[in-house]
Every structure is written in structure tokens, then in C-alpha cells.
């Protein structure tokens, strides 16, 4: 489903503080499976996820999504792909304060021009599935960490994406909530979604919900 060929990524290229975060990554991601990237801070996990999720471009190399090379596409097309095919769960959840849970969840659906009523109905369904229906109209800053994460998950699912990208999804959760997340993760694969996540939480990477663990260090993949 996703193929990466010789992906290299540099920051501050050409400046005195040039830094290469990725050094020639070759990887193939299978559809409908959960792939976890494991590695210490600075190993390039998050950078790799931003490239896969069309949030940034590789400095060198090719990204193929469903057989199509998307590395050279203009920003507008990348945004379309990102909106239609990817759902993001960020480490800090990145919810917009002052908005209710539902209003946060429907945000990715707005640019496609879906009627608000449809979006809200779908958001309520997702919140019910995630056992947070009773908090749907609460402002997100009033929710607990676990509740905020479930709102972030619902937001990632609102456009029914094929791929879920989660960056350190359990970093801000306690053990019980991390286990809840793993249960949700299993639900994703049951629904046929492809999941890519980063984590150095053993609870996640050693879980049966994760089909493949890819080790990373210093911007390179560690051979299996």
C-alpha cells in the first residue's frame, strides 16, 4: 500500500546547521496491518511518519501510495490525499481549545463541503463507539487525557481514511488508558484500516494488536 524508496530527509539544508534526519529508508507497508516504528528520541520515527502522511516532503527518494508516486505532487494534491486517505492522531492530541469535542471532530470534514448535519451525526456515532457520547458537547480542555485522545481518534476517523497515523499515541496515557487504546487499535484492523504508529512503549510494541515492529536508530532502519 505504501512504498518508500531511498527516503532521505534533511533539515536546514545548505546552512551551517544542516541536519540529516533520515538516511535512505526503504520500506513497504502492508494494507490492513498495524506497523509500529520503535526507536529512541531523534531516531527519525516522527520524520518518517510526516513523510508517509504527506505532511512534509522527502529531500530525496520516492513515496508511492497505492502504486502512485506522490513525492512530487503539488501541495494542493497532497492536501487532498492527506484529507481523504489519512487520519492523524498526534502525541499532544492537537485539539483546538474552546471548541467542543464534536466541533473538533468535524474539522477535517469541513473542506470537503459535507453538510454540517451529516458531519455531526458521524461525529456522534464515532464518539458513541469510543464510549464518549456523553461528553460530545463538552469543550475539549475540560476533558481528561484519555477522553482527549479518544476525541483525537474520532477526528482522525471522520473522513473514513484508509490509513491511520499515530505518533506516540500512548505517551500521555497511563497503563489502563494505553490498554484501551490497544483495544481501539484492534478495532481499526477489524475495519480494514492500515495503521502506522511510533512508540517506544513496550505495552504497545509488544502487543498482539501490532503486526509488525520496525526498529529505527539514527535515521536508519534496524534490520529485523
Amino acid at each position: 500500500m505504501i512504498e518508500l524508496s531511498n527516503i532521505r530527509k534533511a533539515f536546514n539544508q545548505g546552512r551551517h546547521n544542516e541536519y540529516w534526519a533520515l538516511h535512505g529508508i526503504d520500506l513497504s507497508v502492508e494494507a490492513g496491518k498495524v506497523t509500529a516504528f520503535r526507536g529512541p528520541s531523534g531516531s527519525g520515527k516522527t520524520t518518517l511518519l510526516t513523510i508517509v502522511g504527506c505532511l512534509s516532503r522527502p529531500t530525496e527518494g520516492r513515496v508511492r501510495f497505492k502504486g502512485e508516486d506522490i513525492s512530487g505532487l503539488p501541495e494542493r494534491f497532497l492536501t487532498d490525499i492527506r484529507r481523504q486517505s489519512f487520519g492523524f492522531v498526534f502525541q499532544q492530541f492537537n485539539l483546538i481549545k474552546g471548541l467542543s469535542a464534536v466541533d473538533n471532530i468535524i474539522l477535517p470534514g469541513m473542506p470537503s463541503g459535507r453538510p454540517r448535519r451529516n458531519l455531526v451525526e458521524r461525529a456522534d456515532e464515532l464518539l458513541d463507539q469510543l464510549k464518549l457520547g456523553h461528553r460530545s458537547r463538552a469543550r475539549v480542555e475540560w476533558l481528561s487525557g484519555g477522553e482527549q485522545q479518544r476525541v483525537a481518534i474520532a477526528r482522525a476517523l471522520i473522513n473514513d481514511p484508509e490509513v491511520i497515523i499515530a505518533d506516540e499515541p500512548t505517551a500521555n496515557l497511563d497503563t489502563a488508558l494505553s490498554k484501551e487504546f490497544l483495544a481501539i487499535l484492534e478495532g481499526f484492523t477489524d475495519a480494514g484500516k492500515t495503521v502506522l504508529l511510533t512508540s517506544h512503549d513496550p505495552l504497545v510494541v509488544e502487543s498482539s494488536a501490532v503486526h509488525r515492529v520496525v526498529g529505527m536508530r539514527d535515521g536508519r532502519l534496524i534490520p529485523d
Binding site: 505532511l55 481523504q84 483546538i96 477535517p108 469541513m110
Partner: peptide, 19 residues
């Protein structure tokens, strides 16, 4: 900083620059 962060979030979740 909050507004910049929000713009980043909106773009990340699929809003176009023009939106």
C-alpha cells in the same frame, strides 16, 4: 503561538492553505 499552532493543526488534518 496558539494561532500558529491552530493553523498547523488545520493544515495537518486536511485544510488547504487557501481555506
Amino acid at each position: 503561538a496558539e494561532e500558529r499552532r491552530e493553523i498547523g493543526i488545520l493544515k495537518a488534518i486536511g485544510w488547504e492553505t487557501s481555506d
